[in-house]
Design a protein around this nucleic acid. Structure first.
Length: 925
RNA sequence: GCGCGCGUAGCUCAGCGGUAGAGCACUACCUUGACAUGGUAGGGGUCACAGGUUCGAUCCCUGUCGCGCGCACCA
């Protein structure tokens, strides 16, 4: 092994070996375990959120694979209808053409080309992240098989009356020219105005003042509404208004939808362009006037002067004209939620069109029940509330999109406008024949389906459904879905509904909801904010200039460029160093707390990169001392107290890590793994082993015991860590495993460590106490007196405990060596000692002759005073607690006893410290 | 308005009804034969605030303040 840990030289090589060997595929044996990847956009790239979730999925996958389960992590991508179409359209625009000019067929050809060209970005990234997905099963939502599933589901739902076509108001994107579902609408408050217009009564007897945020829609007004019990207006109900700028008369109606407190209490009703007004219109049988075309330009339904104006121009014109007529009462500033498309950012219009809908209530009911009765469990559990809240108020789902890229709606129309929903054109034709009694020409619906419609089928469509494949039988229902809370509605809920509907089974038993990765300021990472980090740039590192270029290229809003560049230069003046995949993965695991926001901290990555290096070097130490030597096969093996202790600690860690994985606490699993390796194995065990390796005073059996423990603990630990850090563990394992008596081509397929392999050892765990104390004591004294740790000093340990004495006697040489102590002497009385420095560790008192340390006696007095103050403070707290009569009366006996014990300890400590201070003072002079 | 989350060391975050923790940052000492991407010893916190329950609250309950998110919204 090289002296320094160099991830770049091991990671890609190992991944290629794993993949080539076919080790990612299910073994075909054992309990099935399956995770479906949330399919990323095929033409996109993985962002930090993906890398995060993939790390957790891979950890689970690798863990279960090592457990011997028949493990499948199913990969794939989705076609991301709108997003992908937009990208290709932009390419066309740049080339001076557009999709209408080249036509649907040619356009689709271009999209597929783009998919082929960019589609391997994601798989390349996943390979670099070490994701052990079964690549042979890679799926794409537009694949033939998955498309067949989409058609089957659509037709089947239609046949059951759960899909219908209807003319209704939808959220219309006038830029992209497509309908959107409710979920794709983002309504942020924006500053606007509330215009008050005077609408004259038809009989000339007066006027009503209506308040509106959208003056331009007045041409679609078909009523003015007031509250039926509003004293001011109710006598006017039934009368007519002469709608200004038009020659139309519209009625005054009463409807308790009207809020008397808001505005003037009079509302203009525009059923064709407002969802609430649409409902009112239905209640009052009002006509519905559509005044906009698909681009939100005023159409021929408005007076000639306004035709052809877009929304914005029309608004200005209406206000001017009403002002000229003296009909503008006032204009108040007003903040209102403005609905925008989540992709285009365009202000959406409620617009009357024919669309396909899923009747959702019958699908939602069983899906709610599945979570209620525990067949599906959310982790953390409180996300189920979010789920319920949405599911209980769910609206029919508009699934048609006026796009070209996607699954085309399997419906055909004859010339009379009759629709035939069918699995194939031939089916549709035969239906049409049945209806019309003759052969008729059919044309397929132009629209495609919402991408989420196909995503909703992902857990079973990827396994071959509607065929009853062996894979489907084996892996469905899947075990866990790992995803972010931002797509609970878009995706998770819809998978549950579709899964239950078409397989009578839940699609997954658990849903582990992760937090969202944010930048160091807590902001969401996005291209427009310029704060994205490509996970690969953390792995490979990136120069500052390249990073700036990456963040500022291809921007939708070029004016942000300067600010992004400045912020980037400030935050990463040196660019980003290469950390390697393992460090990045370990960081993600360590950050996977149960909260909802995760601030990504580069400092953590650096810390865990150092951890990789630490592990690497520990392994080098182990190899250096074991390779080519007898690790326990050549004769009797004697295990020392440290050997037994570290084995027991490893066992406890195994148990801890297994438990943490089982409850999806990757952060705590990472913490346990980190702490064991660094604070126990490296800090203590390796140090305690060095003398055994180096000195001749240990027997062959003792040396065998130490070597065997070194390699066995390391080998086991590597397996324990492997799911989180696949590469460095594999690389080290290859070298270490044979020494530990393990063989196999890869760590990936080795058994995950079991607690039973390293049982608890109470005796050893107790006996390590005095050894550690004897090592810590001189360190403490030297450290606090600023004396180099390398200075050898004699050490006196005062103890009355026979057990302590036995342990220290038996390990005296070890302690001398590790603690850098010339001699350790056990005493029961310090009276005969020369002027010494004193310390108490875990209730054990130690002395080092002051003359061997320093000349300045005051330094020792200062140390003692400081320690005394702290002890006195603790003592006071305990005494106050015990002084409370209720405490002794009510607290559990063991707590009281513990408290009394502490007081005794503190008092004895304090007495010794005082004595020490007195002695030092008296001997000074 | 309804629902949810967060507030613990300078920063990023764990934790827990009974002695406040980690990483990073900071201070001092140390180039000791795995590792300076390191070692050792330290400094630093009225656990947002106020009540309540309890022998005991950072933890449980209620409220307040601050920050954030989701859903629904009055034209």
């Amino acid at each position: 092994m090289d002296k320094t840990y160099a991830p770049s030289s091991i990671e890609q090589r190992l991944y290629q070996q794993w993949e080539a060997a076919g080790w990612f595929a299910p073994s075909g044996q054992g309990k099935p375990y399956c995770i479906m990847i949330p399919p990323p956009n095929v033409t996109g790239t993985l962002h930090m959120g993906h890398a995060f979730q993939h790390t957790l999925m891979d950890a689970l996958t690798r863990f279960h694979r090592m457990e011997g389960d028949n493990t499948l992590w199913q990969p794939g991508t989705d076609h991301a209808g709108i997003a992908t179409q937009m990208v290709v359209e932009r390419q066309l625009n740049a080339a001076g053409t557009n999709r209408r000019d080249i036509g649907r067929e040619e356009f689709l050809k271009r999209v597929w080309e783009w998919k082929e060209q960019s589609g391997d970005t994601i798989s390349r990234q996943m390979r670099r992240l070490g994701n052990s997905v079964d690549w042979t099963r890679d799926r794409f939502t537009m694949d033939a098989g998955l498309s067949e599933a989409v058609t089957e589901v659509f037709v089947s739902l239609f046949e059951q009356g759960l899909i219908y076509r209807g003319k209704r108001l939808v959220n219309w994107d006038p830029v992209l020219h497509t309908a959107l579902s409710d979920l794709e609408v983002l309504a942020e408050p924006e500053k606007g105005s509330l215009w008050h217009f005077r609408y004259p009564l038809a009989d000339g007897s007066g006027q009503l003042v209506v308040a509106t945020t959208r003056p331009e829609t007045m041409f679609g007004d078909t009523a003015v509404a007031v509250h039926p019990e509003d004293e001011r207006y109710r006598h006017l109900i039934g009368q007519q208004i002469r709608l200004p700028l038009t020659d139309r008369l519209i009625p005054i109606i009463g409807d308790d939808y009207v809020d008397r407190e808001f505005g003037t209490g009079c509302v203009k009703i525009t059923p064709g362009h407002d969802f609430n007004d649409y409902e009112i219109g239905k209640r009052h049988q009002l006509p519905l006037i559509n005044i906009l075309d698909a681009s939100a330009v005023l159409n021929d339904a408005v007076p000639a002067a306004y035709r052809g104006l877009d929304r914005v121009a029309a608004r200005k014109r209406v206000i001017l004209d009403l002002e000229a007529l003296g009909l503008v009462d006032k204009i108040d500033p007003h903040t209102l939620p403005v609905p925008r498309g989540d992709r285009s950012g365009a202000v959406l219009e409620p617009w009357l069109t024919d669309q396909w809908y899923v009747r959702i209530a019958p699908l939602a009911a069983p899906a709610i029940k599945a979570v209620e009765d525990g067949r599906i469990r959310f982790v953390p559990d409180n996300w189920s509330k979010t789920y319920y809240q949405w599911m209980n108020n769910i609206q029919d789902w508009c699934i048609s999109r006026q796009l070209w890229w996607g699954h085309r709606v399997p419906a055909w129309y004859d010339n009379d406008g009759n629709a035939y929903v069918a699995r194939t054109l031939a089916d549709a034709q035969s239906q049409a024949r049945g209806k019309q009694g003759k052969e008729v020409a059919l044309t397929q619906d132009d629209d495609v389906l919402d991408t989420w419609f196909s995503s909703a089928l992902w857990p079973f469509s990827t396994l071959g459904w509607p065929e009853q494949t062996p894979a489907l039988k084996t892996f469905y229902p899947t075990n866990v879905l790992v995803t972010g809370f931002d797509i609970i509605f878009f995706w998770v809920a819809r998978m549950i509904m579709m899964g239950l509907k078409f397989t009578d089974e839940v699609p997954f038993r658990e849903v582990y909801i992760t937090g969202l990765i944010r930048d160091e300021n807590g902001d969401k990472m996005s291209k427009s904010k310029g704060n994205i980090i490509d996970p690969l740039d953390l792995i490979d590192g990136i120069e500052l200039e390249a990073l700036v270029a990456k963040r500022t290229s291809g921007m939708m809003q070029p004016h942000l460029k300067e600010r992004i560049e400045k912020a980037t230069r400030k935050q990463f003046p040196q660019g980003i160093p290469a950390y390697g995949t393992d460090a990045v993965r370990f960081t993600f695991a360590a950050l996977a707390t149960m909260g909802r926001d995760i601030r990504f901290d580069l400092g953590r990555v650096e810390g865990y990169r150092n951890f990789c290096n630490k592990l690497w070097n520990a392994a080098r130490f182990v190899l250096m001392n074991t390779e080519g030597q007898d690790c326990g096969t050549g004769g009797p093996v004697e295990l020392s107290t440290p050997d037994r202790w570290i084995r027991a600690r490893l066992g406890a860690t195994v148990e801890e890590v297994r438990g943490r994985f089982a409850e999806y606490r990757f952060d705590l699993a990472a913490q346990s793994l980190y702490e064991f390796a660094w604070y126990e194995y490296c800090d203590w065990y390796l140090e305690l082993t060095k003398p055994v390796m180096l000195s001749d005073s240990y027997s062959a059996a003792q040396k065998r015991g130490a070597r065997q423990t070194l390699v066995q603990v390391l080998e086991t630990y590597l397996r324990l860590l492997h799911p989180l850090m696949p590469f460095v563990t594999e690389e080290i394992w290859q070298a270490v495993a044979p020494l530990a008596g393990r063989s196999g081509p890869t760590i990936m397929l080795q058994a995950y460590p079991a607690r039973a392999d390293f049982p608890a050892d109470a005796e050893a765990e107790l006996a390590i106490g005095p050894i550690k104390a004897a090592v810590l004591a001189p360190r403490q004294i030297r450290g606090q007196l600023d004396v180099p740790q390398s200075r050898k000093v004699p050490l006196f340990m005062k103890t009355a405990s026979a057990a302590d004495r036995a342990v220290v006697d038996a390990n005296a040489e070890l302690i001398r060596s590790v603690a850098s102590v010339s001699e350790i002497t056990l005493i029961t009385d310090e009276a005969t000692l020369p002027l010494v420095s004193m310390t108490i560790v875990e209730g054990r008192t130690f002395y080092v002759p002051l003359a061997t340390l320093i000349d300045d006696v005051d330094a020792e007095l200062a140390r003692i005073a400081k320690r005394k103050a702290r002890t006195a403070q603790e003592l006071a707290k305990c005494e106050a607690k015990l002084a409370n009569p209720n405490f002794a009366a009510n607290a559990p006996a063991e707590v009281v006893a513990q408290e009394r014990g502490r007081i005794a300890d503190f008092r004895s400590e304090l007495a010794q410290l005082e004595e020490q201070a007195a002695r030092v003072t008296s001997l000074r002079g």
